[in-house]
Simulated scan of single mutants.
Amino acid sequence: MGKDNKQSKQAGRVKLSDAQYEREMLVLQTELVKVQEWVRATGTRLVILFEGRDAAGKGGTIKRLTEFLSPRIARIVALPTPTERERGQWYFQRYVAHLPAPGEIVLFDRSWYNRAGVERVMGFCTPEQYELFMEQTPVFEQMLIQDGILLRKYWFSVSDGEQLRRFRGRMSDPLRQWKLSPMDLESITRWEDYSRAKDEMMARTDLPESPWYVVDSDIKKHARINMISHLLSTLPYHDVAMPVVELPERPPARKTYVRPPLELSTFVPDLARELAISTRGDTPI
């Protein structure tokens, strides 16, 4: 699809309002908490892969997906560049170490598919290593599934124009500049190389037992809603009875405890109070 067609398609889209987005997200996040409790109660092992180009919206989706989940159950795995020792191991070995135990959810922010994308395009692996990866990946994933792991693979698809717009936004935003690396900038000039690598990866690893699900991510909020709702639709979760929690009444004070003088504690400065006074001019009560 040409750039003009992409821009026309983008202009013709109807976007969710902020209120619609937040309302629907709250519904989905409520269901995700139910998934968490189902995973914990049944000993389910769930693995979710997030793949896509730089600035495709993977991180933002992961953030909203896990926002109300327990970090003891839902873990995010974003591995750094492999060490010298790891480079000499079986390629999948360092990923295996992060697979879930019963009752856990693991979200891979990029995964073993690095070899099919950035490693291949940037020459970080040999053609022989790449071909071996492509041969082993369907077998590896089949082993995970046969062992009872639920595997979900999502590719976040962003257009070249939207990716460039997001890169420019990062360059001027001090809170997000750290997200922009020389490798990201290199991807701009290698757009077609990454496209070909993605196409071959899909052709060889989009299998009935472990399919790829493509998320149109040019509109970030739509991508989050669509991905999370689809994930929920693929899981056989159900409501789990939660223990009834009752808040006990506080017993009457026995007046046997004496708090040490406040002067003995080092409190952080009350900057919030100062800001409230300076910006509103309110007189504190």
Results as ranks from 00 to 15, higher is better:
Asp184Arg: 02
Val39Leu: 11
Val39Pro: 10
Glu86Met: 07
Thr30Pro: 01
Val118Ile: 15
Ile285Trp: 10
Pro80Lys: 04
Arg23Met: 08
Arg165Cys: 05
Ser233Arg: 12
Pro100Val: 00
Arg94Lys: 10
Gly117Cys: 11
Thr61Val: 03
Leu99Tyr: 01
Trp212Leu: 07
Lys179Met: 02
Ser278Thr: 15
Leu65Lys: 02
Val14Thr: 11
Ile219Cys: 06
Pro208Tyr: 01
Phe108Ala: 01
Lys198Ala: 09
Arg259Tyr: 03
Ala241Val: 15
Ala197Ile: 10
Leu69Phe: 05
Gly59Tyr: 06
Glu51Asp: 06
Leu144Met: 11
Cys125Gly: 06
Asp4Phe: 09
Pro260Trp: 02
Leu132His: 03
Gly103Ala: 02
Ala97Tyr: 07
Glu249Leu: 14
Trp112Phe: 10
Thr81His: 04
Leu16Ser: 03
Met201Asn: 04
Lys179Tyr: 00
Trp112Met: 07
Gly103Thr: 01
Gln10Asp: 12
Thr137Val: 13
Ala97Pro: 06
Val33Ile: 15
Cys125Ser: 08
Val240Cys: 11
Glu249Pro: 01
Trp212Cys: 06
Val244Ala: 12
Asp18Glu: 14
Thr83Val: 14
Pro211Gly: 11
Gly169Cys: 05
Trp90Pro: 01
Asp206Ile: 11
Arg190Leu: 13
Val268Gly: 11
His222Glu: 13
Arg204Gln: 08
Pro208Phe: 04
Glu135Tyr: 04
Leu262Arg: 13
Phe133Val: 13
Glu86Pro: 04
Val258Asn: 03
Asp18Gly: 05
Phe68His: 14
Met227Glu: 09
Gln142His: 10
Asp193Ser: 14
Trp112Val: 01
Pro102Ala: 02
Lys198His: 09
Arg166Tyr: 03
Leu275Val: 14
Ile105Glu: 00
Ser172Tyr: 06
Leu247Met: 13
Thr83Gly: 08
Ala101Met: 01
Lys221Gly: 06
Leu144Gln: 05
Leu144Cys: 05
Leu144Trp: 04
Val77Leu: 03
Val158Leu: 13
Gly57Asp: 05
Arg53Asn: 07
Gln163Asn: 11
Ser70Met: 00
Gly148Asp: 07
Arg110Ser: 01
Ile285Ser: 14
Arg23Ser: 12
Thr66Gly: 01
Gly43Met: 11
Pro102Trp: 00
Ser157Phe: 09
Ser278Cys: 08
Leu271Phe: 15
Ile277Thr: 12
Phe68Arg: 13
Ala11Val: 08
Ile145Leu: 11
